[in-house]
Computed example of a mutant assay.
Amino acid sequence: MAAASARTIGKVGWNILESPACRAGNIASLVPRVSLHGSSRAYGTGVAGFRSKLLFTPLRVGRVLGCAYLVGGGLGLYQTIQLSVQHHLAEEEGKAYSDGDLKLTLYQYKTCPFCSKVRAFLDYHRLPYEIVEVNPVMRKEIKWSIYRKVPILMVNDDVQLNDSSVIISALKTQLISKETISEIMRCYPEMKAVNEKGKEVTEFNNKYWVMVNEAEGQTMYPEKDSRKEEIKWRKWADDWLVHLISPNVYRTTGEALASFDYIVREGKFGTYEGFFAKYVGAAAMFVISKRLKSRHNLQDDVRQDLYKAVNEWVAAIGKKKFMGGDQPNLADLAVYGILRVMEGLEAWDDMMENTKVKSWYRCMEKATQSHEDHN
């Protein structure tokens, strides 16, 4: 409609300029007659002077009027094209987002097990994402967020997802249902609670559930109880396996120093922060790891608890390639994400040598590949 109006205005302007009346200077019929009262001398040097101006004025007015129509039509057509292009781009952008082509930005610590879980999910599903490494000391990179933990995932620059399990469940739901992330997040309401130490903590309802309908659920979980098993082992990874990491990587002073050397090398630290973190942090975490061992009732040799947990996981997989069968499910990705933060450390070497996890672990490496391979 706007384009048609613009064309009409332009056509009128062109007809005015091409009309005989305009070319001959006789445009009186196109201009309303004006009755002028009072002395003609007020408008010129006499009657003759006034008439000469009157003969000249219609010609000029006609041309100006015609040009105005043309310019107005041109501007209108320009605005119409601009709006059409913007509308088309908006439709394409909305279509891309609805198809799962989301703009994802992950705020993380590279050596954080929960952040590693999210990366494993994103890598397996080939979802391109940008990484913002957060300084663990100052955390300036997330100063804009009320939620002060990592990981944080920003979706399309306007929806913030917190908590690794919520992030994974919500994105998996989006990949299947194609609903918007804003709609999906209503299924994971945030709630405040007070833990046994009297500290306020944030939890999320339904965080291990992928919100799909019955038909989609049967496709995603074809085997009986497979959904129930996935949720069970995702919880196990968060509630038990992750708590075995620190006591094992900070088991001795040597291991603690090696762990912090790795953390500083892979993380985002300033020169002085890195030096402080490596030596003071290693000493502090060596002490803290002893407290964690007591809190979680671990054996004196915490390696035995790690071996037991990993072998329990392998036994649950059984003869299948993955917990999810031929392809990893969300439990596979969670366990793999947590375990791989130990790579390059003594605890990881001991785990690979003294458990039956190696075959499954190598398959998970191939399934997820690396972020750089497809981003």
Rank of each mutant, 00 (worst) to 15 (best):
Y279A: 11
V137M: 00
I263W: 01
T173F: 06
A367F: 08
S84D: 14
A4G: 13
E141A: 01
E312H: 12
N195G: 06
R23A: 09
V12L: 14
Q160I: 07
G73W: 03
F276V: 14
I338R: 03
A193S: 08
F322L: 02
V314R: 01
P136D: 00
P136F: 00
R119A: 15
D305P: 10
A120G: 08
H88N: 06
R234Y: 04
C363N: 11
A170G: 01
L55H: 07
P151V: 00
M285R: 00
E365T: 04
G73R: 04
K278R: 14
I176P: 03
V85E: 09
L171H: 06
V302H: 03
F114R: 10
W348T: 04
E229Y: 04
L104C: 02
Y43Q: 04
L175M: 15
Y272G: 03
I142W: 00
G281I: 00
K228F: 15
A96M: 11
F276L: 14
H296F: 15
K192A: 10
S145D: 11
Q82W: 06
L161E: 00
V150Y: 02
K308S: 12
S84L: 09
S294I: 06
Q79V: 08
M285F: 15
V61K: 04
S84H: 11
I231N: 12
H87E: 15
I168Q: 06
A48N: 08
Y221V: 11
E266C: 05
K199R: 14
Y272S: 10
M1N: 12
K140G: 14
Y307I: 09
M154R: 05
E93V: 09
